[in-house]
Design a protein around this nucleic acid. Sequence first.
DNA 1: TAGGCCATCTGGTCCT
DNA 2: AGGACCAGATGGCCTA
Length: 177
Amino acid sequence: MSPKVLCASTDLHTSRDAVTRSRFSPSAAASTAEDSGESFSRKAQTGTGGEASPGKHVKQRSRGEPRGRRRVKANDRERSRMHNLNSALDALRSILPALPEDAKLTKIETLRFAHNYIWALTETLQMADQRGYLQGGSGLSSPASVSSAEWDSPAECATSAECDRRSCCPPLSSHEV
DNA sequence: TAGGCCATCTGGTCCT
DNA sequence: AGGACCAGATGGCCTA
């Protein structure tokens, strides 16, 4: 679904990254506009968003580092934080039931799929527990051996549409994570 | 071309 | 004081 290639978590210099960097040139913007005392901000330019009205609220400068340098550092941290988040998301994708190679789940799809997957596993465990399968140690297939389609539409339903009709699966909104 | 998804920047707020 | 986290804004890329 999503043919785009996410930047690898450790690669800070994807082509997209390069494009963005060259476009915004944050270091330049930060060190020129901000060092001169004028805060460079698209929000301020457009006048949208939750920013305080200009002039009313001037954030205090630290006496140490110049504001521009702090901004650049904060941007770097934020970037790596998001890369970290994406790594975790990739790790989550990797343990979800296999999908076709080219079908990479989007972020929101990954979270929803994982949510349903956990729900299905829980249901399976409960059923197995009730039937005493857990003592025997057999009769349960490993999650990895179950197709993603099966996990998308839990055991009782052949299709997700049927699942919707019967409401056998908890709607995500009912216990949104 | 519109809409979805994404990366990035940014300022505010909370926490250590 | 500085870092982490968050949400809004922006613009690029891709697909229907």
